[in-house]
Amino acid sequence: MKVIECTGLTKTYLRKPVLNNLTFSIEENTITGLIGRNGAGKTTLLKILAGFIQETSGKVRVFDDGPFNSLFVSANSIFVDDQMIFPPALQLQEILEVAGSFYPNWDMKLAKGLAKYFDFDPKNYHNRLSKGKTSTFNSIIGLAARCPLTILDEPTTGMDEAVRKDFYRALLKDYLAHPRTIMISSHHLNEIEDLLEDVLLIKDGKKHLHLPISELKEWAIGIKGPTEKVLELTNGEELIYENRIGAGTMYAVVKNNFATLEIEKAGLERTPVRASDLCVYLTNDSRGGIDDVFNQC
């Protein structure tokens, strides 16, 4: 069953497209990483999926329902980011209670356990938390709500390294115990790489890639060697990334269309490309930079 289906999804702000003709679908019980640079439209996409804002055109279905103004979608999804705000009059423990009253799958034991582990004072107030603590608390809400669709928008903003690791571990454990559909956005893939099953890469509001992480790891290769030979071999192929290392030597990343033998025969070195590096290469504008965005529309 498809939890999310987008067809030709477009969102424009003041006639400037933020999301441009996006078509993809997400299966249930998967963890999908939404990867893209700042301003690629990640947050806009997630907010449309959560029903916060309305698409300009195209079709969005979440649980087979249009998410905007859908109580059904709202009841079955949660959107977590560092902008999540709670009434200043409520203490943290009260916020957990309120959240529990709204979400039927809410696991109070998990919520309290995590809050205790991450050292939250239940009588504290949300607006007194530091940036990292705020993200941690919001993520606890996102986990404990156990919503069939859990949307995490840059959930680790401000968290320190140890907390990040703990959080991702908790996310994975809880996901295995209670499978659900999770969308998690980040502009750096490397920190969530081990967690993900699928990657949805968007660039300038367009879908760039959507494939399982295992395929992403095989999707491209790096070829290193004398510049001329590299260019000869890759003639006609699009260079996803090129780097001239010193005089006459070049490193190029291309789509994995070459047999290892062929490369070795040419006397070149073949290296795998890490998925996170690949995403950086793919989302970089190799030619015109930001102007391309405007030229395309």
Binding site: M1, E28, N29, F63, L71, F72, S74, A75, N76, F102, P104, N105, R146, C147, P148, H178, P179, R180
Partner: peptide
Amino acid sequence: MMSLTSANMNVVV
């Protein structure tokens, strides 16, 4: 699959 919750408007309000 986590079962979907049907949302009752009165309850939510």
